[in-house]
Design a protein around this nucleic acid. Structure first.
Length: 234
DNA sequence: GCGACAG
DNA sequence: ATCTTGTCGC
């Protein structure tokens, strides 16, 4: 029901989308440390696309933050709501992600997005946007540095270096596994950068990418396959 | 003006 | 994101 009202005035043009980001950005909360890593729940969200069939599938996977065991998972399928434009990714992913989150019975805890939060041209990436719309603490963990610069962090897990937009630190390049390419962590909503990195390290005991994101990725791909096979969307 | 550019 | 087989390595 909430999703319907949000889709009601979903932007059509890039200019409208940017204006929405500029307005919602003022509601981001950056002065809370956020939930203690390793306590409560952590929820991974991800989205998969079938542009041919105009289908999008989202998944939300709730994990126990201490054990990383599955608590609950949800999916939603819909139509593509916006083209991919660098800097406007949220408008492509958020409607279906919200639909999936809405069906969860468990408290999502901290939401982990596959993308950026503050590390964004207007400091309002997917994780920030999702955080503001849901009120939930959120962080972004991306696989690429986008347009930002960074110096290679030390080779061991836990090493990090600032992710920079000019001389402004908008996130961190964080090494989650020894000798493996870093991930790019930024704050979404109601979580500090230190806490966001601590969460990310707890979520990567085995792989470079957070367990939450890996599970959400697998789940939304499966949901997309099934939706394409049965030919439904809603 | 041209190229780069989260997923 | 997605198109795609085998293959090198732990």
């Amino acid at each position: 029901m909430r999703t319907a009202s949000i889709l009601g005035d979903w932007p059509t043009t890039e200019a409208q989308a940017r204006a929405i980001q500029d307005e919602l950005r003022t509601r981001v909360v950056l002065d809370e440390p956020g939930p203690e890593p390793g306590t409560g729940h952590v929820t991974g969200v991800d989205v998969a696309y079938d542009d041919e069939r105009d289908l999008v599938a989202a998944a939300a996977v709730v994990l126990d933050a201490a054990t990383l065991e599955l608590v609950e998972e949800a999916t939603a399928v819909g139509r593509i709501s916006f083209p991919y434009v660098p800097g406007l990714l949220a408008f492509r992913e958020i409607p279906t992600v919200l639909a999936a989150l809405d069906t969860l019975g468990a408290d999502p805890g901290t939401v982990v997005c596959d993308g950026y939060g503050r590390a964004h041209p207007r400091r309002f990436g997917l994780a920030s946007h999702l955080g503001v719309l849901t009120g939930l603490p959120s962080i972004g963990v991306a696989k690429n540095p986008f347009t930002f610069s960074y110096e290679e962090p030390g080779a061991s897990r836990g090493s990090f270096s600032p992710l920079l937009a000019g001389d402004e630190e908008v996130g961190r390049a964080l090494r989650t596994r020894d000798g493996v390419k870093p991930v790019f962590v930024s704050v979404g909503h109601r979580v500090s950068l230190d806490t966001a990195c601590a969460h990310t390290l707890r979520l990567t005991p085995r792989y470079r990418i957070p367990e939450s994101t890996r599970r959400a990725d697998a789940l939304c791909r499966r949901a997309l396959r099934e939706a394409a096979a049965s030919g439904r969307a809603d």
